[in-house]
Simulated assay, not measured.
Amino acid sequence: MRFVEKDELYPLLFDPIYVDVVWGGNLLKEHLKRQTPERESPIGESWEISDREGAVSVVSNGPMKGATIRDLIVHYEKALVGNVFTGGRFPLLVKLIDAGKRLSLQVHPDEYACAKLKDNAEPKTEMWYVISAKQGAKIFAGLKSTCTQRRFIDSMNSTDIENCLQNFNSVPGDAFFISAGRVHAIGGGNLLLEIQQNSNTTYRISDWGRLGSDGKPRALHIDKALECINFTDRTSPRITGVSSFSDHNRKFPIINRCPVFRIDDLRLVERWPDSTDGNSFHLITAINQQITISRYDLSVKVEIGSTCMIPASFGDYSIEVPEGKETTVIRTTL
């Protein structure tokens, strides 16, 4: 591996990091045709871009193949991440969530709760985009307007807790904004793209009576969760997806007023010209078709479900898509 000059930076692909969990599913294999490793528990997460201790993404293409994302950030800094970068780890974590069973009911802290809880807590806001869903799959996110704080607390140890939650049928193309402080659970049968702050702080409220891989109940974090839950937040987290088809390219903002990330749903039927302006990298995720990132004599193929990082200093590029089909691409920036 060698570092290239800054003006030679190119679109980067990374090896996925697979995580086995008690609730893992089979849609990574069935829908995305991934060759996932055999583990004692099923694979439930694929960390597509990660800069966490013990889970650092490794470049899989080009002259810098084998370098870690940490190596690149230390070496290139703002040329890779963008002018808003002030140091530290890569600011986002990109995952695929393959839920064979329902995940725990949980909540993440905001900055205020982190300061109060300490304990190395990190704020975490995230977005889910439904790539595929089995019949009957659901998303649970946010409190119902009819659920009081007292009822929620009294129901935490019973099955009635589900009646406190907004629930939605999972529809491919729909997205969900899970702000810090919003209770949530992913239902079984979902394959989601998750874009989140680079944080691994999660407080479980309920695990639905399930046992962990060791045969014992997994730990709950009730006191810490109650410090994080925003009981005044009763808004719907769902951003309804595009249902119509068009013979021209379209861009639909999913998240455009969040200080953590901006996310667009691109519906493409032909070449899409784009450019990084130096302020932020672009993360380009292929949802339903293979795409190609190109510029002049350079091209990088991005498989379905994979994410490509366009360095902030890269400038003009194009997304090439198959002819005669509408291709869905998720673009994420800071």
Rank of each mutant, 00 (worst) to 15 (best):
T202E: 09
H184T: 12
C164Y: 12
G212L: 11
S179H: 02
C147D: 09
Q196N: 04
G173I: 09
A180I: 02
C147S: 09
M156I: 10
M156L: 06
T159A: 01
I186F: 01
Q197Y: 10
I195K: 01
N200S: 11
I186E: 01
F168K: 15
G189M: 04
D154R: 12
R150E: 04
T159K: 10
A185M: 14
R150L: 06
N167A: 15
F176H: 08
I186C: 04
P172D: 12
L193M: 12
S145K: 10
S158H: 07
R204A: 04
R204M: 08
I153R: 04
L165D: 07
M156N: 09
L193E: 04
V183G: 05
N167F: 15
T202I: 04
V183H: 10
D174R: 15
A225T: 00
L211R: 01
L191F: 03
T146Y: 07
S199T: 13
Q166F: 05
F168D: 00
D214H: 02
I195M: 02
N163H: 12
C228R: 14
D154A: 14
N167I: 02
I222A: 15
I229P: 00
G187I: 08
T159I: 08
S179F: 05
S158Y: 07
A219I: 08
L191C: 10
S213C: 00
T202N: 06
A185H: 15
G212C: 12
I222F: 08
